[in-house]
Design a protein around this nucleic acid. Structure first.
Length: 880
RNA sequence: GGGCGCUUAGCUCAGCGGGAGAGCGCCGCCCUUACAAGGCGGAAGUGGAAGGUUCGACUCCUUCAGCGCCCACCA
């Protein structure tokens, strides 16, 4: 037992770093696959190396650390694997921006030098992220730190690619992709964000080539008419049947565009005729495929108009072209209608926000998803993978149903280069190791595909590539499948779904059992935190000012399972610090008794002890149940309520006297009980507030570290309903006297006397804590009187059927008490009236369960009793 | 165009078919030897709206409104 000299308030600075280093040094966070324990493993969703950690990371990592720390204490072989993601486009863009700021054009630098430069960035910012994660207290196994571009992870990417290529799941083809003209790369469908805009819908007229009439079409992107190669109508549309196979004449270049029939056209919409622009619209592309129309690509990579258009439009950017084409159509008198504003959705790049062009960019690589869908659907349907909250499972399944082939090639330099080579003889082959010559003809003039893979292609391998896949490592055998994935809903499709699909195909086993989907951290008004709004709360800043534990507690406390938005205000973190300080001071008091955390024998336990043990056991069971279901807010809430409102407010107050007692046995019993409960509660709280709990726990001198202390087990026999019921009399008694004093705004120095008429049992309860109760209620005298004691001249307080008489002489005027009594009476009358109405209702008495009816009757009887007593008091006090 | 979530105290949110809760904020009293980052007491809500089911609805059902989000090849 360490005699403690604790400072008056908790100061997290210093404490945190010291303990973190100690924990890492002692290897508490290291996991080994040669263990007899059961495995528990979480793969950290790897943060991007693009910048610093934000509050969303802090939040998500806190939840994971809570799960990990508890499992570790429960005796699992616990692995939390840290890492970072190279974040293809994101990182390339920030490094390009940095270069341009230095006056360097990234293109001049060349691919190799550019990639070197990104690695330098990775060292700098990736390193900073690691430091931030340490400050959060995360119990990572640092020895297993991974980066998606590490050598072995890159090899995993190649093995995955080659295997899927070999099975025909990866193919190369020319189709419409999502093109970002700013970042100059294609994007997958999931990387396009849809935004509603107020655009325009222009209906214009194509004249039939033979001069026999016209056909009207509409578009929100009128410039694309330069790439029109035909007009499509529904095959069964009577209006246009005679026009099919005729042609219309393009007004600007005189081309004849065939009118074709295709079922994709909705005859109900607009004019029922659609312009067909195969190179710039997915549907049109498909119509062209079916009807044999050619493709006409009118855009350059930067979304300016190509040389395929008439000279007057060449080189214009798409928005200028939109205006110019419209003007020219107007001049020619071909504009039929202009609707403006016309609300519709446009796609935007999830990285830079530029408007996406559906574009034919040449050949791109795709993952065919049809064969991947089945198993990915199966494992969620049969419950092998479980979503929390459950409703996300449906969202996931519906997304799978709609999923189309995944474009995985990116026209970037930063990332895993596509492991496919081409030879001059037209051969194409994929290889895990860099080849010297063509696998088919041996020609040495081979060239690797210049594109890199979608960053999510490597991310999808994360749960198993980090454990050594494709090698059959011990780690993989022991820790895989991982136990839980904790992530935000915004990457459900981009990442979660793809991990499941790829794992089922490549590993043949689910990547994780539970998926915990949490909401997004917002500012206090529910807005996204962003630099431009100036509402960013920086986790490191908060840690500096309030301490890591305060931040973690605040984050855990707001993690309601169904919340999509999690508003965070700085005050919440301040409240976390208050809580830490409260615990610190409670510990100071308990530790001052200088006893071991041991429960005394039953016969030395007071009612208050039994009550507190019961409440503690309840708290323990709530914490366990909530953690099993990932209800983090409930965990925090439960611990907060117990420690503050029960342990401190009542437990400590009821034990203070004995804690200072000269009697060794009394002191040991009281202090031992409090210490025992506090020590266990610290262990329950440790996953959320690791530093404070360690700092305090150490002073009990009972073990090496709370990090590896045992998770508190259930002690069902401590639940004690009798103690809770009996102790509630103490709470009510103290509360009644306090309220009396407060109602009359009495100075605390005014001495009060209480004379109690109560049952033997109640008398005994009060008697055994008379000193404590006097102190808490602010009574100078507490005495028991027999039935029939003259109550005149006293206020009468009703406490659970007992009567408490407070003599008014020298305290306050009787009339003042009358006012108070009348106030109470009106409240009672209201309640009694409502109760009476209920019982007068035949339906209620007949149909409601008998215990409910009985309860209502008891309640009414009690209210009546109180009313009579109060009326008697009014009479005694001579009130009118 | 489909789908989902939310709407409860001034703020942020729990909860739930039978007497409306927490934290913060607010008001009053108190520097009582663990803690003023504290203690004690208090005020405060026609539970988004309208219907329905029920003896009884904040809770279940329907409709509507507002806010937010996801998905979608209607030009």
């Amino acid at each position: 037992m360490v005699r403690s000299e604790l400072s008056k308030s908790y100061d997290p600075s210093g404490v945190e770093q010291r303990w973190y280093l100690t924990w890492v040094d002692r290897g508490y966070f290291r996991a080994v696959p040669e263990s007899d324990r059961k495995p528990f493993c979480i793969a950290l969703p790897p943060p991007n190396i693009t910048g610093a950690l934000h509050m969303g990371h802090a939040f998500q990592q806190t939840l994971q650390d809570v799960l990990i720390r508890r499992r570790r204490m429960q005796g699992f072989e616990t692995l939390w694997l840290p890492g970072t993601d190279h974040a293809g486009i994101g990182t390339q863009v920030v490094v390009q921006r940095e270069l341009r700021a230095e006056g360097i054009d990234p293109r001049d630098l060349g691919r190799e030098k550019f990639v070197e430069r990104v690695w330098a960035w990775k060292e700098q910012y990736g390193g900073r992220i690691l430091e931030q994660m340490k400050a959060l207290g995360n119990s990572f196994d640092w020895g297993r730190l991974r980066f998606t571009m590490d050598e072995d992870l890159s090899r995993a990417v190649r093995v995955a690619f080659v295997r899927m290529y070999g099975e025909g799941l990866i193919y190369r083809g020319e189709r419409i992709i999502n093109w970002c003209p700013t970042d100059q790369t294609s994007l997958s469908d999931s990387e396009v964000e849809h935004e509603d805009v107020e655009g325009e819908l222009v209906t214009f007229r194509y004249m039939l080539s033979d001069g026999s009439g016209h056909i009207d079409v509409a578009t929100t992107r009128v410039e694309t008419m330069l790439g029109d190669v035909g007009v499509a109508v529904h095959p069964e549309d009577e209006r246009y049947r005679s026009l099919v196979r005729k042609t219309v004449r393009h007004p600007f270049d005189g081309r004849d565009l065939p009118i074709v029939a295709d079922a994709a056209v909705d005859p109900e919409f607009g004019t029922g005729a659609v312009k067909v622009t195969p190179a710039h619209d997915r549907t049109d592309f498909e119509i062209a495929e079916r009807t044999g129309l050619p493709r006409l690509n009118i855009l350059n990579a930067d979304a300016t108009l190509s040389d395929e258009v008439p000279e007057e439009f060449r080189g214009l950017d798409r928005y200028q072209a939109r205006k110019r084409v419209l003007e020219r159509l107007r001049e020619l008198g071909f504009v039929v209608k202009e609707e403006r504003p016309y609300p519709h959705a446009v796609g935007r790049c999830y990285r830079c926000g530029s408007e996406i062009e559906p574009w034919l960019s040449g050949k791109q690589w795709f993952v065919a998803v049809d064969r991947l869908k089945g198993p990915a659907r199966q494992v969620v349907e049969d419950g092998r993978i479980r979503f929390t909250p459950e409703r996300w499972a449906r969202v996931y399944l519906e997304w799978l149903d709609r999923l189309r082939d995944w474009n995985i090639s990116r026209q970037l330099w930063w990332g895993h280069r596509i492991p496919v080579w081409y030879c001059p003889n037209g051969h194409e082959f994929a290889a895990v190791e860099d080849p010297d010559s063509c696998a088919e003809c041996g020609d040495t003039g081979i060239e690797q595909d210049p594109d890199v893979l979608d960053t999510w292609f490597s991310s999808q391998l994360w749960p198993y590539s980090t454990l050594g896949w494709p090698e059959q490592t011990k780690d993989l055998a022991f820790f895989y499948p991982t136990s839980v994935l904790v992530t935000g809903y915004e990457i459900l499709y981009l990442w979660v779904a793809r991990m499941i699909m790829s794992a089922m195909f490549l590993v043949g086993e689910i990547p994780f059992r539970d998926v915990v989907i949490h909401g997004l951290v917002r500012d206090r008004r529910g807005r996204k935190m962003s630099k431009s709004l100036g509402n960013v709360i920086d986790p490191l800043d908060m840690i500096e000012r309030y301490g890591t534990d305060a931040l973690r507690f605040a984050l855990a406390r707001m993690a309601g399972p169904e919340q999509q938005n999690l508003p965070l205000a700085e005050e919440a973190i301040g409240a976390g610090r208050h809580f830490a300080n409260k615990i610190w001071n409670a510990a100071r008091l308990v530790l001052s008794s200088d006893v071991r955390p041991e429960l005394p024998a039953d016969e030395h336990r007071t009612l208050a002890d039994r009550w507190l043990l019961s409440r503690h056991e309840l708290c323990r069971s709530e914490v366990d149940a909530a953690l099993e279901e990932y209800r983090f807010a409930d965990v925090a809430q439960s611990l907060h309520r117990f420690l503050w409102s029960e342990f401190c407010d009542w437990g400590l107050e009821m034990a203070k006297n004995r804690l200072r007692s000269e009697d060794d046995q009394d002191r040991t019993a009281a202090g031992g009980t409090l210490a025992w409960i506090l020590e266990r509660t610290l262990r329950l709280l440790h996953p959320i507030m690791p530093f404070l709990t360690e700092e305090v726990w150490q002073r009990f001198g009972i073990g090496e570290s709370i990090v590896v202390a045992e998770w508190p087990s259930a002690v069902p026999e401590h639940r004690d309903e009798e103690a809770e019921r009996e102790f509630s009399f103490v709470e009510d008694f103290v509360g009644a006297v306090r309220r009396f004093r407060s109602d009359h705004v009495l100075d605390p120095k005014v001495p009060l006397t209480a004379r109690v008429q109560a049952s033997k049992a109640h008398e005994e309860i009060l008697g055994s804590f008379s000193e404590e109760i006097q102190r808490l209620a602010g009574l100078e005298t507490l005495e028991f009187v027999s039935d029939g004691f003259d109550p005149s001249g006293s206020a009468r307080l009703a406490v659970q059927g007992a009567e408490v008489l407070v003599p008014l002489a020298g305290v306050l005027d009787s009339l003042t008490e009358c006012v108070r009594i009348r106030g109470r009476l009106s409240g009672i009358d209201e309640d009694a009236e409502r109760s009476r109405r209920k019982l007068d209702n035949d339906g209620f008495v007949k149909k409601a369960p008998s215990d409910v009816v009985e309860g209502e009757r008891r309640k009414l009887a009690e209210l009546e009793g109180q009313r009579l007593a109060l009326e008697a008091q009014l009479a005694e006090l001579g009130c009118e």
